[in-house]
């Protein structure tokens, strides 16, 4: 049984993960809740971690695997109201996850569990030549700009600048973040990094980002992008395979 203070914040986590995955197996143990899975095409990986400290209340015996249909969970979470607390309660007897919104009253959905097991995927140990921290909404806006021009985007680090660029048949777009840019928090690089990515996936991954959030990007040349940010007490990590010439 786990209680989160803001159902509405957690809704954004579920919304974002559901953009990429159809189902997920949550592992709940005394450290908190984690989950990791690749999308069916193996282009993207999502890793979710909600430390025990993020919960207002957390009770567990042993370790539980909770298979969830994300489309159904998302629909339920969309019913969260701004002052609702969220209680997630595993009913092993009925094989359901109770999703409870608590405010002046108590509204309870019982979500049927899926018979899926947790993936054994570990994050690959990739050494990245460049790490960029920047304001999440600035990154998201640059991706939305690029989306007007093409269906892919190139993310580059060169000369202590982070560049988002794309070329369409007729029109081009680029956004540069250098040390003078208030959106750029830090940039560490050993040489250049340049990789191309599908924009639809990237836009799905940044869906939950709002003003004030900070994203951390790990980049290389023709390497997967690693993207990290925190949302509603959850740490989200994404990997996205590049497009290669």
């Amino acid at each position: 049984r786990a209680t989160l203070e803001s159902a509405k914040e957690f809704k954004k986590v579920v919304d974002t993960v559901a953009q990429i995955l159809d189902e997920i197996c949550l592992i709940a143990n005394e450290d908190g809740i984690t989950a990791r899975a690749m999308d069916p095409s193996h282009v993207a990986l999502v890793s979710l971690e909600i430390p025990r400290l993020s919960f207002e209340d957390y009770e567990i015996e042993g370790e539980k695997e909770i298979g969830i249909d994300l489309e159904a969970f998302k629909k339920i979470m969309n019913r969260a109201k701004s002052k609702d607390k969220l209680i997630l309660e595993l009913d092993e007897e009925k094989n359901k996850l109770n999703v409870i919104f608590e405010n002046s009253g108590r509204r309870k959905f019982s979500l049927a569990l899926l018979d899926i097991s947790a993936s054994e995927i570990k994050m690959p140990e990739i050494e990245y030549p460049a790490v960029v921290m920047l304001k999440g909404d600035a990154f998201k806006e640059a991706l939305k700009d690029a989306d007007l021009i093409s269906d892919y985007v190139i993310l580059k680090v060169e000369d202590n600048k982070f560049i988002v660029e794309t070329k369409g048949e007729l029109n081009d777009f680029s956004a540069e973040f250098d040390e003078d840019s208030s959106a750029l928090i830090s940039i560490e690089s050993q040489g250049h990094a340049k990789s191309a990515f599908n924009l639809e996936y990237l836009l799905d991954m940044v869906k939950g980002i709002k003003a004030g959030d900070i994203v951390k990007l790990y980049l290389g040349t023709d390497m997967p992008l690693k993207l990290e940010y925190s949302l509603g007490g959850a740490n989200l990590t994404f990997l996205l395979a590049p497009r290669i010439e």
Partner: peptide
């Protein structure tokens, strides 16, 4: 704009 590859090859290394 290139060809989309998968993550699989990065897990093998």
């Amino acid at each position: 704009d290139g060809k989309q590859i998968t993550l699989d090859s990065f897990f093998k290394t």
